[in-house]
Design a protein around this nucleic acid. Structure first.
Length: 194
DNA sequence: GGAATGATGTACT
DNA sequence: GTACATCATTCCG
């Protein structure tokens, strides 16, 4: 089977890594099950000249994981209820990451529906808070190394064809919207927005 | 110490 | 399309 993605995959300019992440598969092994989805929508958050980034003020207690080595997870709580999952990029100490905004569910759909408390496959992983809930992620995954363990990333299946990649303004922020740092797979029915 | 706010999702009109 | 739940973090005084 495909080997998990290693450290070097995550190192480099964050927008490039964000682009590389599209099409890869996020796999969480939990309770003897395998929950898996393909990344179809992401957003890049930078360290410099990015007023929307959590790292803009430097390291704090909340954003500490953003400054770990590339390939680590950054999970934080938003609006008091939901959680968002990020992949650390760039280099250790820089403070850049990619927010995973939507997945195409591939394996463990019933388990995901159970965790979500909803059936509709289209709403299983189409949003940062939704996919975190569907895959059973939480605060305990903040700071985890994604290059090994129960939560990893796999390359696309051999033979899978990457659709054209589109870009546009990031969602849900009030500053930094002029930058086209949101990337998604053209035509995917699994994104958080059409 | 206190107040404002947010990389969202859901329900309802 | 609009309203609102809910709370840690952040920023201001």
């Amino acid at each position: 089977m495909s080997r998990r993605l290693g450290r070097s995959f995550f190192r480099g300019p964050t927008l490039e890594v964000a682009r590389r992440l599209l099409g890869t598969r996020l796999v969480h092994r939990v309770d003897g099950r395998r929950l898996e989805g393909r990344i179809v929508e992401v957003e890049a958050y930078l360290a410099r000249d990015d007023p929307a980034s959590h790292s803009r003020m430097g390291p704090t207690a909340r954003n500490a994981s953003m400054f770990l080595a590339p390939g680590h997870a950054y999970v934080y709580r938003i609006y008091g209820l939901h959680r968002c999952f990020n992949v650390v990029t760039a280099a250790q100490g820089v403070g850049e990451a990619v927010l995973v905004r939507a997945l195409e569910p591939l394996r463990g759909l019933e388990e995901m529906a159970g965790r979500r408390g909803r059936e509709d496959p289209r709403h299983l992983c189409s949003g940062p808070g939704r996919l975190v809930q569907a895959l059973g992620l939480g605060d305990e995954h903040d700071g985890l190394d994604l290059t090994g363990g129960d939560l990893v990333l796999l390359p696309p299946e051999p033979g899978w064809i990457l659709p054209p990649v589109r870009s546009g303004p990031r969602i849900g922020i009030r500053v930094g919207t002029e930058l086209p740092l949101r990337l998604w797979l053209a035509g995917s029915p699994w994104t958080s927005r059409p």
